[in-house]
Structure formats: C-alpha cells, structure tokens
Design a protein around this nucleic acid. Structure first.
Lengths: 130, 130
DNA sequence: CTAGTTGCAAAGAGTTTGCATGGCG
DNA sequence: CGCCATGCAAACTCTTTGCAACTAG
C-alpha cells in the first residue's frame, strides 16, 4: 500500500490506463518506461501494490506461457464483463445491460456471484473470425 | 505433439483428471508424482504438449502471482463455462443450457465467439459468501 | 531397431529483495 | 526532517534445454 504519490507510480498508472485494451507484460512496461527513468523494480513493486488495491489484474492469454497485466481500475470496469481475443489479444468491454443480465443469470443458475471487473471471457473477436 | 504413450504421460493425465476441480501448479504435480518416479522436466514437457492439444489451460488466480494449470480435456468441458472461486479456488461447471444461452447472448450483443472450455468466470461461490 | 521421451544438471527468464540513496509530504 | 519509495545488483523461483540413457511401437 503506497503512502506517497511518486513520479514513477503516476507514470506507470498513466501507461496502464492508456493501454487498458491490451495485455501488458512487466517487460513491455519496462521498455516503454525506461526512457522516463523508471526501474524494473519500481514497476514490479507498484504493480504489486496495484494488485492489492484491485486496480490491476494478472492474467494469462490463450496458449501463451507468460503472465500479463491489465488495468481494471477504471470505474467503467466494474460495470462490464471483459472479452479477450485469443488471436489478437485485444480486450473489449461488453455492454453494461448484457453484463448485468449475464451476472444475474449465473447467480440464479449456479448461486455464484461473478466479479465482472475481474473476469475475462476468452474467445475470438469479430475481426479475427474472418 | 506426443507420438508415444509413455507411463509418465498417462500418470500425469490421470492426476490432472482426478484434480480437475482445483488449480494445480507444476510444483504441486511434481510433489504428488515424484513418488511415482516422474521428473519435473517430464511434467513440464507434457504440460506443454497438453496445452498445444488444448487439453490443459494455464490460468492465474485472484491476487496470486503464480501460474496454475487446469485440465479442460474432458468432453464435458467443451459444453460448460467454468466458475472459479477467488477465495477457495474451486472450479465449478455451469449447466450446459445456461452456458449455451450465455454464449449466444454474448455473440449477438458483441459479435464475439466465446470459447467456453477455456473461459473461467471469477467470483465468489455459495460456500464462501456465507 | 529407431525415433521419441525421460532424467539430470545446467542455463534462462522473470520476479523479488537488501541496502544505501533520493524524494514526498 | 522522517519515512517511504527507488535503483541497482544479487538472490530466487519457475521453466526450459542439451545430452546421454531408456523405452514404446
């Protein structure tokens, strides 16, 4: 849990927000933020804090063997399910109404409370199906 | 892609099937399979093949920082969405009918083809909500 | 037999941590 | 100023790989 608002922390958050639609590895961030003078360890330490705060989620993609990070801190994320494409890796937001319907459906069918901000449906998007 | 049916591969598959309802790390498997004389590298190599065949999926859990594996090779898995509890880590299968309905709903709303065998909805199960 | 698979140990990748320095409040 | 966060490098953990021995078909 951070107590100071450091420059590094701000830069990292900005970067994550700007790239909320695609999954990032810690390495990706390091490359993009190195020029701004942000060390790998600062990235890892902040990512760790952000996860504890529930603003960042770890995830794996399709057959990939790496761990990716996704920003889920936006207020909108709480209201939407996420759709992630196996092929291109892009993440889309599902409409709030449909999300609501789905969450309720699962609740009544399986007595399971879905956390939409943190769940990702995997599949293939419109573009990649062509 | 394997060409031989080795003892190690069978044992690993058996173990995965027997534990399809909970996420396992490669280490977990190694511990349980060491007594049967199966090396870590055999486990990793077979897991890799199994992933390529689409029988095993990698996933991350809640705030955890590790990679887990789940068996998705059972024919039933193709017909069900998976519900995984943040708290206890247990995986449940959602009914086939509801799964179908959900998949269709997403398709018509977002033009996105959900791969149910490989997607996991995160949330909190009945037990853990008490 | 022949080629794929295993075990072991060493190599790699990604992530974490200790400690001195620097910066937020 | 005091304490937290950063940077760097070393330490770790998990995963992959080279090679000789083994084994399924």
């Amino acid at each position: 849990m951070p107590k100071y608002e450091t420059r590094q922390r701000k830069e990292l958050l900005d970067f994550l927000c700007d790239n909320a639609d695609r999954p990032l590895t810690a390495g990706d961030m390091a490359v993009s933020l190195k020029e701004k003078g942000i060390s790998l360890s600062a990235i890892y330490r902040n990512l760790s804090d952000l996860q504890d705060e529930g603003k960042v989620q770890r995830l794996t993609i399709g057959g990939k063997k790496r761990v990716y990070y996704r920003y889920t801190g936006a207020k909108e994320c709480e209201k939407h399910l996420h759709l992630s494409c196996f092929k291109c890796g892009h993440t889309f937001h599902m409409g709030a109404t449909t999300t609501d319907a789905l969450v309720k459906e699962v609740m009544s069918e399986s007595d399971f409370k879905v956390d939409s901000a943190n769940t990702v449906l995997y599949g293939v998007c419109k573009q990649c199906r062509k």
